[in-house]
Design a protein around this nucleic acid. Structure first.
Length: 479
RNA sequence: GGCGGCAUAGCCAAGUGGUAAGGCAGAGGACUGCAAAUCCUUCACCGACGGUUCAAAUCCGUCUGCCGCCUCCA
């Protein structure tokens, strides 16, 4: 039974979607004003795994995400880069989609953009005004938070306290300092703006997500995800305007929030400037390495990024890769079967571990625990195939094949490939050549010409080809 | 100041009532011509102080420290 931690109730709840076999989820995307960074990627990886696991559980998952492609930040950045705002938004939208591709993160089923949903947004704003939940003043439209009795239910705040705690007096045309903008008037000189019943302007930040998720997923959908830093005000406001608009509660059944990525003690963010872009990271690390770094921590915990830590998890990941490679080498069938009775019970052990893995995932997507189980499986496999007296029987071969399938099935859920860094460089000719060199080395070893044998190995190593004399014979890989 | 969260070995990190998964680093050993890979062994008085309980890392209280949000943020 799957349990998920719901920010709304602040506890784990049994997952029970609106429709039995379907899951509709919406994940807040980003403002496409710059290249994405690890903070965005962390969330994207978390929800990618969640989506994969839900699908594994048999749900048909609809995954929607968005791009905020018009606001002050985009305009400001466009000026900086001397581009048209729309062109800038396009540039970084494209860049982000490329990043996802390079990270082996599945694309959303549909991405919506604020600028393509102005009509839906305006319709929503107008309805909120008609219902008395919003008011227009001086070309701005604000949501009247006091009209919405549940305001604060997601973030655990109440209006009185918040008003009392308001830091400074904002002189504005709002009735209440906590009222938030649904529609923002913009200066006449602004090239990009839309006409509306309230004057030329832009959508407020929160309204786009409400309008688009309602449009794509309906008045009540299952999962809404985003970073913990979006709980207030963004998601709080989404609830208020969505439920006020539709009259249907709840807007979302399960609110999921992933932790932030910190660096040197502070949240990695564009405004603080302490971030690595995804592109920078991908120059140094593989998609698997970044993903593994992320999923060895629980999705709700904050992560402290450091090069040292990611190097350490890379070593850990290598063990999983090595196990896969060794297993594949065995299954390639170049070993003769010995006709003896020998059941090492590997398959049974791995089946048990698989259940542990799935239990971990059922417990609020505990990928940290699950990867631990994966390591235990790898150790069990290594114990069988990496021994000096390795004997392959038909029965063991069959078991290893089943075990391999389980191993990769679980690895797939996590979205890992366990591909070595440059597997694609292995062409047939290349394989042939390396194997030929290793034959020469084998001859040298038989003649105890260690010097030459080691030279071949060292030279190959320098070219990035690692040679290993395993109990099963010599194997090699690119790294 | 308000709201929320966290504090587990040198480091990272699971674990929410029955005396601590996993990984990195370290130490010792096995295997190897030497390596690499792999395996085995070893490595925690669970921030402090009280309380509840037969039993607490796990529940309650106080304290200390850290983080997020309250302004744009994944």
């Amino acid at each position: 039974m799957l349990k998920v931690y719901n920010t709304l109730s602040r506890q784990k709840e049994e997952f029970d979607p609106v429709e039995d076999d379907k899951v509709r989820m919406y994940v807040c995307g980003l403002t496409v004003q710059n290249y994405s960074h690890l903070g965005h990627v962390r969330g994207a990886i978390n929800y990618d795994v969640i989506r994969k696991y839900l699908r594994y559980k048999g749900y048909k998952v609809t995954y929607i995400s968005n791009f905020t492609d018009i606001n002050e930040k985009i305009i400001a950045r466009a000026e900086l880069e001397d581009m048209q705002p729309m062109a800038l938004a396009y540039k970084y939208t494209k860049a982000f989609l490329e990043d996802l591709e390079n990270l082996n993160i599945e694309k959303a089923d549909h991405y919506c953009k604020a600028t393509e949903n102005i009509d839906a947004i305006q319709e929503m704003v107008q309805t909120l005004i008609d219902k008395g939940f919003a008011y227009e003043t001086n070309g701005n439209v604000y949501f009247r938070v006091e009209e919405f009795e549940d305001y604060g239910k997601l973030s655990g705040r109440n209006l009185e306290e918040m008003i009392a705690g308001t830091r400074k007096k904002v002189e504005s045309d709002k009735e209440n300092p906590l009222d938030f903008a649904l529609w923002k008037k913009v200066d006449e000189s602004e090239e990009i703006a839309w006409d509306s019943p309230w004057g030329r302007g832009w959508p407020g930040w929160h309204i786009e997500c409400s309008a688009m998720s309602l449009k794509e997923l309906g008045k009540t959908f299952d999962i809404h995800g985003g970073g913990t830093d979006l709980i207030f005000p963004h998601h709080e406001n989404e609830i208020a305007q969505s439920e006020a608009y539709s009259g249907v509660k709840p807007f979302v059944k399960y609110w999921l929030h992933n932790g932030t990525v910190n660096m040197s003690g502070d949240k990695m963010s564009k405004s603080l400037g302490n971030f690595y872009t995804t592109r920078e990271l991908l120059e140094k690390y593989t998609a698997d390495q970044l993903r593994y770094f992320v999923i060895t921590k629980h999705y709700r915990s904050p992560i402290e990024y450091s090069d040292k830590e990611i190097e350490s998890t890379n070593t850990s990941l290598n063990k999983l890769i090595n196990t896969k490679n060794s297993l594949e080498n065995v299954l390639k069938g170049k070993y003769d079967f010995k006709d003896i009775e020998k059941d090492v019970g590997l398959y049974e052990k791995v089946k048990k571990k698989k259940k542990e893995f799935l239990d971990a995932m059922d417990d609020d997507f505990n990928t940290a625990l699950a990867t631990g189980v994966l390591h235990e499986i790898a150790t069990e496999i290594n114990k069988v195939i990496n021994v000096s007296n390795f004997v392959l029987t038909q029965q063991l071969y069959n078991d290893l094949k089943k075990v391999y399938n389980i191993y990769m099935e679980l690895v797939d859920i996590l979205g890992l490939t366990l591909q070595g860094e440059k597997e694609e460089n292995k062409s047939d000719k290349f394989n042939e050549l390396v194997n030929y060199i290793l034959e020469l080395r084998e001859e040298a070893r038989e003649n105890e010409n260690w010097e030459f044998a080691d030279k071949l190995r060292d030279d190959l190593d320098e070219m990035g080809i690692k040679v290993k004399d395993t109990p099963r014979g010599t194997e090699w890989e690119i790294n």
